[in-house]
């Protein structure tokens, strides 16, 4: 039975082009006792795309991807990866995905190179091939000079790159990244992004979670924004910005009473965040001139709308702790 499934997967590998959907989630739910972590979500990830799951802390991002790599069983719904049902073909699925978990769980008892070699053995990769692949990946991640080092001697950025290298050891058809750059300095983040862009351009399907909007706009072809276990919106980053915010936004620092009265009289869409107003408008160029000429001399800017505007507009500004 297992063998048959293995053959099935192999043949579907040969006909990769016909397999458009790498992940198909339908009505996916995950509850922990009374807590509903993932509340009936559906989405599909296409072959070769980078798909992002965005959301504030506790939105259900990690719970969602943990179900996809088989770490935690789903409560209800249907989930297919590579066209295989997750409850039946889990071992086959897991042998073709690479996972970069949120916590650095590198093996501190092993050296940098051994971390990759031992991990390769979990995938039944023969010793020689494992060593070759491990060295290639260390070079790709600019870690070749540290192969004998202890994991605990590495910097945060190097550890992340090593986790990333480890997740590629089995030449996966799907790479799953849970907040790949959280806690890294800007240099390290850019290094990780460059590697991920390289992988994406080679056609690797990537699923990532993040709460960095710049990361999502840069890497993701499509994304969903989640909150309280539900999907709020789905689409391409720019399309989402256009649809929910517009092209530009006007930000006013310490708005005067006159300006607030003007905004209300014009029935403009805006958000009041204490000492700052954010005004959304289709015709932001003209509006900006009007506002800056008549109501504020400085502390008033016109800027490009970003994914962050969409995110905050949809998920609100309350702290999530």
């Amino acid at each position: 039975m297992l063998k048959r499934k293995g053959v099935l997967l192999q043949s579907s590998h040969l006909e990769k082009k016909q397999m458009e959907h790498i992940i198909e989630a339908e009505g996916l739910r995950k509850t922990f006792g009374d807590l509903v972590a993932v509340d009936d979500i559906s989405f599909k990830v296409l072959r070769g795309e980078c798909f992002g799951i965005l959301g504030p802390n506790g939105a259900g991002k990690t719970s969602t991807i943990r179900m996809i790599y088989g770490f935690s069983p789903m409560t209800s719904g249907s989930l297919k990866v590579f066209g295989l049902d997750i409850s039946k073909g889990l071992r086959q699925i897991k042998s073709h995905i690479g996972v970069c978990q949120q916590e650095n769980n590198l093996d501190p008892d092993l050296s940098v190179l051994q971390n990759l070699e031992v991990y390769a053995h979990y995938f039944n990769i023969p010793r020689k091939a494992a060593e070759k692949r491990a060295k290639e990946l260390l070079a790709f991640m600019s870690l070749g000079h540290r192969e004998k080092a202890k994991v605990t001697e590495l910097s945060g950025g190097m550890m992340r790159r090593l986790v990333l290298a480890r997740s590629l050891i089995n030449n996966p058809d799907l790479l799953i990244l849970d907040e790949p750059t959280t806690g890294l300095d800007p240099q390290s983040r850019h290094q990780v992004w460059e590697r991920l862009e390289g992988l994406r351009s080679k056609g690797l399907t990537i699923l990532l979670t993040t709460h960095y909007m710049d990361e999502a706009s840069r890497l993701c072809d499509r994304l969903v924004i989640m909150d309280h276990g539900r999907i709020l919106v789905m689409g391409e980053p720019f399309e989402l910005i256009r649809k929910h915010i517009g092209r530009n936004v006007i930000e006013v620092n310490a708005p005067s009473k006159e300006l607030q009265a003007f905004i209300q009289s014009q029935k403009l869409e805006y958000e009041d965040i204490g000492h700052r107003l954010i005004i959304y408008s289709e015709d932001s160029d003209n509006l900006f001139h009007k506002i800056s000429d008549s109501y504020c001399k400085d502390g008033c800017i016109l800027r490009m709308a970003t994914l962050e505007d969409v995110f905050l507009k949809l998920t609100g500004r309350d702290l999530r702790e």
């Binding site: 770490f71 769980n105 093996d107 991990y119 039944n124």
Partner: peptide, 14 residues
Amino acid sequence: YQKTFDAIMATPLS
């Protein structure tokens, strides 16, 4: 502490 089992559970091992 080392989360070694977590890491292994993301591979084909159960």
